[in-house]
Design a binder for these strands. Sequence first.
DNA 1: CTGCTTCACCTTTTT
DNA 2: GGTGAAGCAG
Length: 711
Amino acid sequence: MPGADLLSSLNSEQREAVLHGRGPLLVLAGAGSGKTRVITHRLAHLVRSGVDPRTITAVTFTNKAAAEMRERAQALLGGAALAAFIGTFHSWCLRFLRRRHREASLPPRFAIADTSDQLALVKEAMAELSISEQVLPPNAVRGRISNAKNALVTAERFAAMETDYAGERIGQVYALYEKKLAATGALDFDDLIARSVRLLASDAAVLADERRRIRHLLIDEYQDTNSAQDALVKRLGEGADSLAAVGDEDQAIYRWRGAEVEHILRFEEDFPGACIVALEANYRSTARILAAAAGLVSHNRRRREKRLRADRGEGAAVRLWHFEEDRAETEAVAREVASSGKAPGEIAVLYRTNAQSRPFEEELVRRRIPYVVVGGMKFYERAEVKDVLAYLRLAARPEDDLAFRRVVNVPARGIGAATLDRIAAVVRETGRSWWEASADLSGVTERARTALARFREIVVDLHEKAATWTPSALLDHLLAVTGYGDLYAGSEDREDVARRENIEELLSSAREFERRNAEGATIGEYLDTVALATDADAAAASGGAVTLSTLHAAKGLEFDTVFVVGLEEGYLPHGQSAEDEDELEEERRLLYVGMTRAKDQLTLTLAGRRLVYGRVEPRRPSRFVDELPKNALEERMFGRPAPTIFAARAHEEDPADDRPLRRGKRVRHPRYGYGVILTEEGSGDETRLTVYFDRAGKKKFVARYADLTPA
DNA sequence: CTGCTTCACCTTTTT
DNA sequence: GGTGAAGCAG
């Protein structure tokens, strides 16, 4: 049995957390303080002291974190670790709801709607309600609905709470969206959590049963829980022998997704008598990196005062590199990567937005340096992958409307808009699924009817085979019979080649799934895994490659050498987050997370000019640069320093600026009514203003011609 | 009905 | 710069 002595490798605080007995425990785990180590060792310790592993549930936020935890628990415990549940919030909820679909009044094989499915339904609902996409951007509406669900606010309550014009309309969309989602027999990501909470709250027998199953609960990244997840933890945790929550409010970076730091700050009140353990020894970064990061985050107000001790000596200064323009930044970073003498796998380039990866990718390709991009366009979001999976979903359940509509005419088989409108009308009248409505359709051409019949034959065939075939065999088969396999065949087009490769990749991922789950490799299980698998496991391949990642996706990783690039206003803080104090604190934490990924060498870079949306724009250094303690830094200018006009910091409001039409001011427009100025672009006669109107949404004007008056 | 074109709008971050 | 929606010729 591996890991004979579990405790000898731990410091005294870590040991206390691992040995904690009954009741609630909060572990405040600073960056690099051995958080995962504590969770996995605690899990191992519980099993060693006689706890049945099946009664242990460990929950994380990402698949990546869950996979790592499973791996490390296995290293300590061997196969016994596999009996414990180790997975994400969403995967726990999905299993729970599948098991309890009857009590939750859900169809037995309900589908999962991803973000793009949600968006499609929102657009559809808005069209039916005659709400213009100009006035309310569908994606923003989607976000509002998602936030509401994460706060356990139903459509009815939303309508009661939101009484302004936009809120009212969003409430209507929310209600219709819910109706549509229910009609297709699907749940969205947020429903997985919210419906689980609702079921546990309303059904005492189910709750009692779950509490019997879960004796010990471990929650990772507690600072990132949203209200629904927090409610779930409370429901389950209150009945358990022990509840261990691990987190660090300085690394809370998911506020925009409904997470609230309050949950961790309030833990002792919610769980009276909770034991609190602070892990303050940092084993990852050298002292100067840590000092720079700590100095930055100390500007935040909503946090617990804490002191991280560096365990690894002084180390090198944090480098701050100023460039005239982005090209120079990209080249310098790539050059440094090439000449550092470090293995590519020990190096990461981190940035705020996915779009920033491109120039670095190009430069690394040019220099033939291997790299992996974490996140970005996700494998399972690619159109061809979703198409093929939609066929698989139809095979499992032909009544899956979302899947039906996605592929009914892919590849094109003569079922066009007119025919689909006809089916939609029948669906609306009868309340049946698209599959049922398409069975005997009247009022369409003979051609369309034949095409539809042909499509239905395919689905019937797939459905028959779905009960007994393996996922990969059925995928293979459906590629042949649907004609999808030939869609991109024989083309030399780069896009088409990539599509073929992605489909190939999907097939091998299905085979891999079957290999790992020899027993339960059903189509349903495969679809569940895939529905929640959003990253394409870039980490696995990163052994010999430079990691390119967003700051968000870098959480939990560490590298010898880290570059955080684009330290400019607009990126850090992001333009959308510079107004609100809470959002600003989150941006600061985001940079903190990035900086604390570095073990030995940290380099921060910024440029005075940058290509944004294909236009060269002047950039100003991030306000966070000023907050870094100077004695931990080593600054360097490449080329001429930025002109002084750009050096003025964005956040210093100019007291001489008494113009009535500047950012943040309220204005009135004769046609659109009252609103607030969001952004100013250009200057003088060229100044363009973006105004958000209370009733009409976002509009852009040339200031000189717009009939705007201060309000 | 299909496939090609042009044209807005876009992107913060993810299960 | 890239993508999805809309418009138009076969």
